[in-house]
Write a protein that binds this DNA or RNA. Structure first.
Lengths: 340, 340
DNA sequence: AACGTGATCGAAAACGTTTGCAATGGAGAG
DNA sequence: CTCTCCATTGCAAACGTTTTCGATCACGTT
């Protein structure tokens, strides 16, 4: 029954209850110093009018709002998963969550919208923010926690143990007998991309496999960026027997390219991704990948932000969560295992 | 580089630029009546200080904020899908989106939180809201669009063509040769639940199959509610050869129960759901279901809300989107097809 | 020289809330 | 009866912005 009309304000309540707005405010916020009878009157007026305090006005006046913000650059499935974790962490914590999503996906404001949103929110609306989009310079008057930060960032952040995850992938492939393992890197400015590459290199080095620059493709986590790189890797005469892409989105493109070139997976080529997005389980064959619990990423980020906002010092401002190798059908021993 | 410190306000800009806040406001909002040189000064001051207008203060002062709100009761995967559609519709529309999620998932405010959030948002922050949670009484001073409304609601709403969807399911089952078809209903207050049951009844009637009340289980869309109902339906001597659950969540529970009772699907029992959530494709066997594009639901809702907010009358305040039967492995002809 | 005109800009009110401070009143002490 | 004191309550300022209104000024017209 959407009845239009001016929203009921505190003055309305005050008038009906026959008191001042100051008193109404005190009742609403449970402040000390209001007589029982007045409280009853105000309560009844609130009930009668269906009054609810304006989030905006309260935010403007107060410094603390008990609202946390989240800024994300898009809503992929992983963002939703992060969200679940955040909400779970905030459940019954007294903090509400506001998610700010920009409408100008491809608009003129595309550059720098993260900062715009962050500033607009943290100006007054929120006590702190979680940033899910990769962004280099984070300026904010209130605490910020970044999920998957850029390399070298000093902002409090939560990230997966990308090094260990990538290492486990390469060890898995080496264990199957692969020696020529291609790698498609992610956006190089991101710490996660860098750590995954680092894991790739270190695991190869540890096994005594020489590093071949020709096996590296420089992607940017955007699935489309992987397509030409996969073609390039697979075109050479001495093509790799396995390709490890730094994200599932890119790995799925590799799968596509391989099929397009008449290569069977995992028969002719093993493919591994990173992230364990839902689509990976549905792929044909299922994509071997590294699970980084997005849920947990969100949960830890919210927890960290909460402690930053309330001022409870928790020591670590940088949290790493463990990863887990998920072996599916896209990896198998190479057809010919030369040198074994 | 999160630098703490008081956020920069319009007064700061005014001081630096040597003008009044009124002028700064005019520049920021592109109002007419500011000299080119002044504009340049103000712009430079804004740049220098990194000023961004406070969403809160602006909202408080203005009536229009160009921000739309979305209130959802939880973040299942379908909510994320709805979100994508909403964001796409709002892309480059000049509207931003704020999603308000409550932290008191199981808290004392559990009852009526939707209304609380809606009121807090629509009070001043947003120009209108999309409500994704089923809720009976919607009170709001600003336009509201409800996705999947309650039965009899007069609030502008967007819903799937549940009647046609349910009809297609039953026709599919009838076509396979089923005659005893069980039905597990959804929350009866919802229009979608009612329409799905209506479709079930009408399709049976159209085929001349008598309606048997013993084949109806009264669920509430909550997956757990389906478990005892499935047991009850399958316990009888004259058990159905197929069960149509009004939601995928409930259908998956039926699958579980059937397996638990030693029934093979689709050998001994065909199972159909409604919604086509991602999990349904992953189930073993894949769940036959009705696809209602959540994306489209969100898209249309956002579009409708936009037109309501801007006052462009678009006629229909009630939108139905088409559904599509998705046949997977969970349906097959009954083992014995009596009467055929 | 007086005046109208249009462009530019600042003062101040307003949005709805919170809160420091002061005012009011009644009760108890002297 | 007066004074003090505490509990209760209202007044008004403040949060950061937008917008109305009027002031100022330069310029061209009579």
């Amino acid at each position: 029954m959407a009845d239009v009309g001016a929203p009921v304000t505190m003055s309305d309540v005050a008038r009906v209850a026959g008191v001042s707005t100051a008193t109404v405010s005190r009742v609403v916020n449970g402040r000390y110093g209001v007589s029982a009878s007045t409280i009853a009157q105000v309560r009844s007026a609130i009930e009668q009018l269906g009054y609810e305090s304006s989030l905006v006005a309260t935010s403007l006046r107060r410094s603390r709002t008990n609202v946390l913000g989240l800024v994300a650059h898009s809503f992929q499935s992983y963002t939703a998963e992060v969200l679940k974790g955040v909400m779970q962490a905030l459940s019954r914590s007294g903090f509400d969550l506001i998610i700010y999503a920009n409408s100008d996906l491809y608009g003129t404001y595309a550059e720098g919208w993260e900062q715009r949103h962050l500033t607009r929110l943290s100006g007054t609306l929120t006590d702190g923010c979680i940033v899910v989009t990769p962004w280099d310079e984070v300026r904010s008057g209130t605490p910020v926690v970044v999920i998957d930060p850029v390399r070298g960032s000093t902002v409090p952040s939560v990230t997966a143990d990308n090094l260990a995850g990538a290492t486990s992938v390469v060890e898995h492939l080496l264990g199957l007998g692969h020696r020529r393992i291609g790698f498609i890197a992610g956006r190089s400015s991101l710490e996660s991309a860098w750590s995954r590459e680092e894991g790739y290199r270190k695991a190869l080095a540890a096994a005594g496999v020489p590093f071949d620059p020709a096996l590296i493709g420089r992607g940017d986590f955007n699935p489309e960026s992987a397509t030409p790189l996969a073609h390039a890797l697979l075109a050479g005469a001495d093509r790799p027997t396995a390709i490890f892409a730094a994200s599932d989105g890119m790995a799925l493109k590799v799968l596509e390219v391989a099929k397009g070139r008449g290569l069977s997976v995992p028969g002719d080529l093993s493919v591994v991704g990173f992230d364990n997005i839902p689509e990976s389980a549905l792929a044909e064959p299922g994509l071997t990948t590294v699970d980084q619990s997005m849920y947990r990423l969100g949960y830890e980020a919210a927890h960290l932000l909460k402690s930053l906002v309330t001022g409870e010092w928790e020591g670590h401002r940088r949290i790493e969560i463990p990863t887990r190798l998920v072996v599916r059908g896209s990896t198998a021993p190479p057809k010919s295992t030369p040198g074994l």
